[in-house]
Computed example of a mutant assay.
Amino acid sequence: MAMPRETAVSIAHNVFLLLDGWVCTCVLAADEAARLLRSATH
């Protein structure tokens, strides 16, 4: 039984938003870690 197109689009949109937020969080954490490492070495 196939799901309706609207449901599939909604699920895909929610997954994209979740992944986008996760990637953003990882990038911010890496940036903060790099900044701390730079300040610790100077």
Rank of each mutant, 00 (worst) to 15 (best):
M1V: 13
M1G: 08
M1S: 07
M1A: 10
M1F: 11
A2L: 14
A2S: 14
A2D: 14
A2E: 15
M3V: 14
M3I: 15
M3Q: 13
M3L: 15
M3N: 06
P4L: 11
P4C: 08
P4Y: 03
P4K: 10
P4D: 13
R5D: 12
R5T: 13
R5Q: 14
R5S: 12
R5G: 02
E6T: 07
E6Q: 12
T7P: 00
T7E: 14
T7W: 06
T7F: 09
A8M: 15
A8D: 09
A8I: 15
V9I: 12
V9Y: 01
V9L: 11
S10D: 12
S10L: 11
S10V: 01
I11A: 08
I11C: 03
I11R: 13
I11Y: 05
A12N: 06
A12Y: 03
A12R: 10
A12V: 08
H13G: 03
H13E: 09
H13S: 09
H13D: 06
N14S: 10
N14Y: 02
N14R: 13
V15A: 08
V15I: 15
F16G: 04
F16T: 13
L17M: 14
L17S: 04
L17P: 00
L17D: 06
L17V: 12
L18K: 06
L18Q: 05
L18Y: 06
L19Y: 02
L19E: 08
D20H: 07
D20E: 07
D20K: 14
D20N: 07
G21T: 07
G21H: 07
G21S: 10
G21V: 04
G21L: 11
W22F: 12
W22M: 14
W22T: 14
W22P: 00
V23R: 02
V23I: 15
V23F: 09
C24Y: 04
T25Y: 09
T25I: 10
T25L: 14
C26S: 05
C26Y: 01
C26A: 11
C26I: 08
C26L: 09
V27C: 01
V27E: 00
V27A: 02
L28R: 04
L28A: 10
L28K: 05
L28G: 02
L28H: 01
L28Q: 05
A29H: 01
A29C: 13
A29K: 04
A29P: 00
A30E: 09
A30H: 02
D31K: 05
D31F: 13
D31V: 15
D31M: 15
E32L: 15
E32N: 03
E32G: 01
E32T: 13
A33D: 06
A33W: 08
A33E: 09
A33Y: 07
A33H: 03
A34H: 05
A34P: 00
A34E: 08
R35W: 04
R35L: 10
R35G: 06
L36F: 05
L36M: 06
L36S: 04
L36E: 12
L36H: 04
L36C: 05
L37I: 11
L37C: 09
L37T: 08
L37M: 12
L37A: 14
L37N: 06
L37Q: 11
L37P: 00
R38Y: 02
R38W: 01
R38Q: 02
R38S: 02
R38I: 02
S39K: 01
A40I: 04
T41L: 11
T41F: 03
T41W: 03
H42L: 10
H42G: 04
H42W: 06
H42N: 05
